[in-house]
């Protein structure tokens, strides 16, 4: 499903370049739950951004669903975001002006889902995450763990093929972390969603079925 070949990422620095990623070869099959680990500054987040089509690699080839994404137009890329990719962020990044319900609904609006289907889909998720009572609250009225639950719900509401999660539990205490990670595991096993997460925690990595380690931009 995901195939990286000799992917590098560098930034111009003075007269030379600073490499963040070097010659990464990585294959991720559908249904995998991959954890990217490594010390700070090893390029984990950059790799995740490249995988999530938020950044472009400087060199190498990236096939997403067998399609080379370097050549995609903005429109095509947007289509991939709309239909196949979900994101979960460390800082949740919910839209402050929207209620829980509306935040979860947003991706469906972009996907162009009809209103009744939207309603039932959001209701289903609210039910599943035990958040029905909170649907009309605004993000700042929720705890961190609840906000991240909304973040996850938003990431999966449009039935993406893959979820990219960037330290999804980084801002949460351990109980909340466990709740989120168990949710990920369930999504992976029951809903067959491919998950790629960046994490510092071995415990969290243990929920997945494969670990990719990075050091100074190289695959370790």
């Amino acid at each position: 499903m995901i195939k990286l070949e000799k992917i590098s990422k560098y930034y111009p620095a003075g007269f030379g370049k600073t490499y963040v990623l070097r010659h990464i070869d990585l294959h991720i099959k559908e249904g995998e739950f991959v954890s990217i680990m490594g010390p700070s500054g090893s390029g984990k987040s950059t790799l995740l951004h490249i995988l999530g089509l938020l950044e472009e690699p400087s060199e190498g080839e990236y096939l997403f669903l067998d399609e080379p994404v370097q050549k995609l137009s903005e429109k095509k890329r947007t289509e991939l975001h709309r239909h196949h990719i979900g994101f979960v962020f460390q800082a949740y990044h919910l839209i402050d002006e929207l209620t829980v319900y509306e935040n979860i609904e947003t991706p469906l609006l972009y996907k162009g889902t009809g209103s009744s289907e939207r309603k039932s889909r959001v209701a289903e998720l609210l039910d599943r995450f035990n958040m029905v009572a909170k649907k009309d609250l605004f993000p700042h009225q929720l705890s961190g763990g609840q906000q991240q639950l909304v973040g996850v719900a938003r990431a999966i509401v449009h039935n993406p093929k893959v979820i990219f999660a960037d330290e999804p539990t980084g801002n949460l205490h351990s109980e909340q972390s466990i709740e989120i990670m168990e949710l990920f595991q369930k999504l992976n096993q029951e809903d067959k969603v491919t998950i790629v997460q960046v994490t510092h925690s071995e415990t969290n990595a243990g929920y997945g079925n494969r670990v990719v380690r990075l050091k100074d931009g190289w695959l370790a």
């Binding site: 999530g52 938020l54 903005e74 429109k75 947007t78 289509e79 975001h81 709309r82 239909h83 994101f87 990044h93 919910l94 839209i95 402050d96 002006e97 947003t106 991706p107 972009y110 996907k111 938003r154």
Partner: peptide, 17 residues
């Protein structure tokens, strides 16, 4: 700054410029 997050999320969930 206040709107930026919204813009980011929108783009990530598939909104065009």
């Amino acid at each position: 700054a206040r709107r930026a997050k919204e813009i980011g999320i929108r783009k990530v969930t598939g909104s065009r410029r």
